[in-house]
Design a protein around this nucleic acid. Structure first.
Lengths: 207, 207
DNA sequence: TGAATATTGTTAGATTCTTCACAAATAAGA
DNA sequence: TCTTATTTGTGAAGAATCTAACAATATTCA
């Protein structure tokens, strides 16, 4: 598999999501032109993106929907059964743990860490063990490479610790700024920033 | 103000966030090179981005932090006092409403809509009125252009209604696919997709 | 005040990403 | 089986984005 660009990478989950919906609707095959209308990405871009993974389609026919789904699922890590940890079991952290309904969609949250684990463990909605943040090292699952960060402050220190413990990717819900150690990757999920961008763009439309 | 590229637009909230932190730390002036280390964006890119808004800096000196903050805040809509609605007061919706601590950071959530408003209104954590989804039209705030979508299904129909009611921007937390009506903008906040991307990238690193 | 120093704003070139256009390949129908 | 219809996969052109390099300009210190 060749080098895949960041831009393409961002589109793969979009394809997978759309394909799942199409499959549910009973669609067996699809052509790039039709998928294009569905995901609002140009057919050529779709074909190029697909071709980076391999020869997924058949000329003169199109793509087999279920085949695509299983390929993308595998490529996107649904089969990796990635083990993840979550740090900060506040309101947001709890919402995410609950949402763990996603059932191995991209792996599984194995355990969580918090400053007041006693309290968190009592909440009926939290369905993984919560340990004290000081136990990071001893309770870190084997082979865990991804951490979900939902703490309100003190991110830098924890990120540094995570780095030392072998975490390579961070899903960042923190609004606080921190410097990413060498060799780590992060993705921000920032609702406020997202809204700000949108507001800015909507207001640009109005001018 | 010239035409601002999508790429630049995405960075503005990042700058604002970092500048706020710097200001809190007592920083009065900053140079593009220093800010660069902070946000991990090349100095030239920063200067270019800033210059699109106007002559914000002084040569041989740098940028005034608080001045930048107030300019960005204005540009990003914090002064627009944008009115927003939220649809779907489930676990996630509630978390967002709570997080409404952001206090006019990008506007204000005025009210929410749900299928069971009676129940939602009883929850102590929800601090805005919740109306039944069928009352969308009559309860829509004047001048509201942005909706936050947190429903598990049935997105398409609601999006169409919102469009008819003058909503121009959607912050989408739904995992369901829908077609965006002409003239609308959306931003996806998709935790699962974000994790998928990250898993994919981390696994690419390992190869 | 004037020279030396520092840092912005911007031009031009490099890089990354997108899309056009068409050859290659398959499917379907005669 | 052969021809016609399609639709993919991809080379090359085009567009968007990023960045190196430097001229312009402000600041600072003698």
């Amino acid at each position: 598999m060749g080098e895949i660009s960041k831009a393409t990478l961002k589109r793969y989950p979009v394809y997978l999501k759309a394909l799942r919906k199409l499959s549910e609707e009973g669609k067996k095959k699809i052509m790039s032109a039709e998928l294009s209308e569905y995901v609002d990405i140009k057919p050529t871009t779709i074909r190029r993106d697909f071709s980076l993974i391999g020869q997924l389609g058949k000329q003169g026919y199109g793509y087999d929907v279920d085949e695509l789904i299983s390929i993308f699922a595998r490529e996107l890590g649904e089969d990796y059964d990635e083990k993840m940890i979550l740090i900060g079991v506040g309101r947001l952290g709890t919402a995410i743990l609950n949402y763990n309904n996603w059932n191995h969609v991209a792996g599984e949250i194995v355990c969580a860490f918090d400053l007041i684990p006693e309290k968190r463990n009592k909440e009926p909605k939290v369905n993984v063990p919560v340990y004290h943040i000081s136990q990071l090292k001893e309770k870190m699952p084997k082979g865990c490479e991804i951490a979900i960060l939902c703490i309100p402050s003190g991110a830098q220190q924890i990120v540094n610790e995570l780095h030392d413990l072998g975490i390579k990717g961070i899903v960042n819900f923190t609004r606080e700024h921190f410097v990413l150690p060498e060799g780590m990757i992060k993705r921000d999920v920032d609702v406020v920033s997202t809204i700000q961008e949108l507001v800015f763009e909507v207001n640009s439309m109005n001018r």
